[in-house]
Amino acid sequence: MTNQFADFGIAGFGHSLGVDQKVEAEVLTEFVDDPERVLQWGYHTFHRAPADVTAIELSARAARDAIEDAGLTADDVDYVVLALSDVPGYLNWDASSALAREIGVRLKPNLLLMEGCVSGVTGLGNVAGLFATDPSLQNILFVAVNRVSEYHRNRMRVNNSIHSDGASAVILRRGHEFGRWLATVQFTDPDVSDWFRTDFGGEVAPVAPADWSSQTQANGLEAVVDHFRTDPKGLQTFVTALNQRLVEVTDQACAKAGVERSSIKKIIHLNDNQGSFEEIAEVFGVPISSTSAEVAAQHGHMGAADHLVTLAEYTRSGELVPGDLVALIGISIGMRWYCTLVRI
């Protein structure tokens, strides 16, 4: 089914990853004093960028690869969209413009998305809006990047995922047959919007206390427990609803696209731990092989970059072929549940 408002597909892929790090006790002890807890998450590898490699540099490498893969030059790019899912390099600064400068796309429009890892998926819906409202657009560069700021966040204490450094990029081309966008849906539970925030460095608290360190800051999940400290029944209800809402948002996307959930070939979830993938497979009623669990274990959680890196791997390996229906799903800050459907 072709969307009547925005008809576009993926004409090229690119990605750039930090240096591979094995998930083993001697590596993990730099970040946590209980490596066994992290080992239980089931990751094999994560990516850590060198200290002098920024999010913009990772993004530019991925962008150039996608432009080349699509057979284009920077002059052919009509719009640059950047989804940035960690702390930006600077305050009062437009990272999307910095990316455009880095890759040589000048005097063209650009857009910056900063809604955490969700923006690497719902950003495709934003692009649909651009195509729908501006018939002159032909090729949009969409880049999603996660570069952990280790001053602000401990990559192994944000939640029950190892946070990884990487960027993914795609060229989204009007009328392209491969990787067609079908629908994007998201909804939020704003009552818990403060969970997983970085408390220091922003307008409310620009400077951290002298004794504060990301190495010892509370795990984001501790904020969840604290929220429900006097309401254990409420916590149980919320936990039960977490994955069920993924099914709900996927069903909403399927309804918009006019497809059946049973026709989805692959469920690409954010690169969560293996236990979460088992739970997701159960709630969707599919074998875990129908999810992206195996790829997630090789990369760690690359924030907004997860889904497009995984989609590229599956299409290049031949596991996904033209005609296959793919759901890109996840849960992000906000709290947001989201799904984008793509027809390979």
Rank of each mutant, 00 (worst) to 15 (best):
R173H: 07
V326F: 06
N219S: 12
T291L: 03
G123M: 11
W195F: 13
G120C: 08
T188D: 15
S262I: 10
V105N: 12
F187S: 01
A293G: 05
A305M: 11
S85F: 08
D69A: 15
G71S: 10
R197A: 09
W181A: 05
D194L: 14
Q4A: 15
T2P: 00
T45W: 13
E177K: 10
T216G: 04
P206M: 06
M335D: 00
A253I: 07
I344L: 14
G234P: 07
S16K: 13
E24Y: 00
A132N: 09
V143Q: 07
N139Y: 11
Q138H: 12
D165V: 10
H301D: 06
N273L: 05
H163S: 02
Y314A: 09
T237I: 02
D324G: 02
R61H: 11
V53P: 02
F8P: 10
R106G: 04
N3M: 06
S292K: 02
L107G: 07
L112F: 08
G12K: 07
P109Q: 03
H227V: 07
E319R: 15
I56H: 04
L113C: 04
E30A: 10
V239F: 07
A208N: 11
I140W: 02
A63R: 06
S16H: 12
Q21W: 01
V87F: 05
H163A: 01
D194M: 15
G42N: 08
F31T: 00
D34A: 10
S85R: 07
S164W: 04
Q21F: 01
N92T: 14
D86M: 14
G202E: 05
S317F: 09
P232C: 05
A218G: 08
L320F: 02
G330T: 04
G104E: 11
